[in-house]
Design a protein around this nucleic acid. Structure first.
Lengths: 252, 252
DNA sequence: AGAGACCACTGGTCTGACCAGTTTTTGCAG
DNA sequence: CTGCAAAAACTGGTCAGACCAGTGGTCTCT
C-alpha cells in the first residue's frame, strides 16, 4: 500500500479515537514529513485525502485542523456544516439537548460497564475538582467531568459525536451551568445529580448511571426552557469559531 | 481557492454529470498536468482528494478509474481501501452501530410521538416500497424507510447526526441489508422487524417503536459480527453513489 | 508457437526551490 | 518606556526534474 495512504489512515484513526479533538491543529506538513521520515509531497497527498473525506480542513498560512463535525459527514461545502439549522429555529437548542440526553445516557451506561481503573481515577479527579469550585469556572469543569465519563465508554464514535454536539451548543448559547448556576437552589440540585451519576459509574451500575445521566441532561434542558419562557434570555455567543475553539483547547 | 481544489471539483463534476462513466479510465497524471497547464503535484493532490471522497480509485502502474457503483464484481475485496478500520481495531464499525442503535431508537420513539399525517404517509409509502422489492435494490429502500422515520422525529439534529453516522458506515462497508439479505432466513427476520417498527410508529406507540428500532439495529450489528467472525468479508461500497448521495440529498 | 528480455507506459516518492498568506519578533521613532 | 511598522519566521501552495516501482505490450530468440 502507498505510504500516503498509510499515513492518512494513521491520522484518521488518531482523530477518530479522540487523540485529536475537533478544531485542534495538527502538526505542520514539514514537521510531519520530518517526524515520519517521508517527503512533504507524501504528507500533502495524505492530507488531501483526509480533506476529501472531510476529516480535516486546511487553511493557507495557518495550518490543518481537525474538522469540527463528524468525519465523513460533511458535504464539503464552503460554509459551516450545520449553520443552516440555526436560522430562526428556537427549538434547535432543545433538539440538541434531546439528542444529548440520549447519548450521555448511553455513555454513562457504557462507562459504568467498561471503565478501567485509570478511567475511574480520571472521573474521580474531575468530579472532585467540580465539587469544590466557584461557579464561575464551573463550565469548564462540568465539561471535564462529563467528558471523562464519555471517554470511559471506550467508544470513539460516541466521544466524537458528543464532542460535536457540545461544540454546537457552544455556538448558540453558553454552556448549561453558566446559565443556571446563578440560582443557588438549582446549583444544589445539579451537584446532587452529578454525585448520583458519579457514584453509579464508579460503582459499575449501568442502568442507574444511564438514568442519572439522562435525568441530569433533561433537568438542565427543562430548566433552560423555563428560563426562556420567563423572558430570561439565554446568553448568546457570537457565531464564530472562537468560543468553540477556545473551549476545546482549554479542555484537553 | 487552491488550484488542486478547483481541479478536483472540475473532475468530480465531469464524472457526476456523466462525462466519465464508472470503471472508465481517467487520463494519466502527466497528461492531465500538461493539458491543464499545472504541475503534476497539484494533479496528484486533486486526485487524492477525489480518492478520499470515493469518487475514483487509483491503481499503481495502471491508472486512475471512476469508482464503480456495483460492489459485486470487485476483486479489490481483500485490500479494500477502508478496511483499515478493521485492522487492529475491529471495534470501530460496531462502535458506530452501538451509537446508531441508541439514536435510531430515539428517532423511532419521537416519530411515534410526533409524526404528522404527512409523515405517516411518507413512512407508509417507504415501507410498502420496501416490502415488495427484489433484494438487489433493497439497500436504497432500506435507507429510505429509516430516513422517513428519522425525519418524522422532527428533530433536525437527530436527522443530521444519524445521517452522518450512516455516511460513515458507507465509508467502511455496505449497508446492512446488502450484506445480510443473501441469507434468506435473515431476510425474513429483518422484514419482520421492519414491520414491527412500522406498525408501532404508525400506531403512535413510542416505547414499542423504540424497542423495535434498537432491536433491529442490534440484530444487524450482531449478524455482521457473526459474519466477520466466520471469515465472511463485508462488501464495500463507493461513497458518492446511490444510497449515500440520495440519503444526503433527501434531508434538506 | 512459446518463453523471456526489453521497453514504454502507469502511479509513487524524493529533493529543493520559490510563491503566498499568517503570526511573531524585532527595532526604531515618538 | 510605549506604539507601531518593518522584518523575520512560520504556515500551506506550486513548480521543476529526477528516480523508483508496478503493468502490459512487443519483439526477438529458441
Amino acid at each position: 500500500m502507498a505510504i500516503s495512504q498509510e499515513i492518512s489512515y494513521r491520522l484518521e484513526r488518531l482523530i477518530l479515537d479522540g487523540g485529536l479533538a475537533p478544531e485542534q491543529k495538527i502538526p505542520s506538513e514539514r514537521q510531519l514529513a520530518t517526524r515520519l521520515g517521508v517527503s512533504r509531497a507524501v504528507i500533502r497527498e495524505a492530507l488531501h485525502e483526509l480533506q476529501g473525506r472531510g476529516v480535516i480542513e486546511t487553511r493557507h498560512g495557518k495550518g490543518s485542523f481537525v474538522a469540527s463535525m463528524v468525519p465523513g459527514a460533511d458535504d464539503l461545502g464552503e460554509h459551516s456544516p450545520l449553520m443552516h439549522l440555526f436560522e430562526g429555529h428556537p427549538r434547535t437548542l432543545f433538539d440538541l439537548l434531546e439528542v444529548r440526553e440520549q447519548l450521555e445516557g448511553q455513555a454513562a451506561y457504557l462507562a459504568a460497564q467498561r471503565a478501567t481503573r485509570l478511567d475511574r481515577h480520571r472521573i474521580t479527579k474531575a468530579f472532585r475538582a467540580l465539587e469544590d469550585t466557584d461557579p464561575l469556572s464551573n463550565a469548564r469543569l462540568d465539561h471535564g467531568f462529563h467528558l471523562a465519563i464519555v471517554e470511559a465508554s471506550h467508544n470513539p464514535v460516541l466521544v466524537h459525536v458528543l464532542n460535536s454536539l457540545k461544540n454546537m451548543m457552544l455556538l448558540t448559547v453558553q454552556a448549561s451551568v453558566a446559565n443556571l448556576n446563578p440560582r443557588e437552589e438549582m446549583r444544589k440540585k445539579i451537584v446532587r445529580q452529578h454525585r448520583q451519576l458519579y457514584e453509579a459509574v464508579i460503582a459499575g451500575k449501568p442502568v442507574i448511571a444511564q438514568k442519572a445521566a439522562t435525568a441530569h441532561v433533561r433537568f438542565v434542558s427543562e430548566a433552560m426552557r423555563d428560563m426562556e419562557k420567563d423572558g430570561g434570555k439565554l446568553i448568546r455567543l457570537p457565531v464564530n469559531q472562537e468560543a468553540g475553539a477556545e473551549y476545546s483547547r482549554a479542555t484537553p
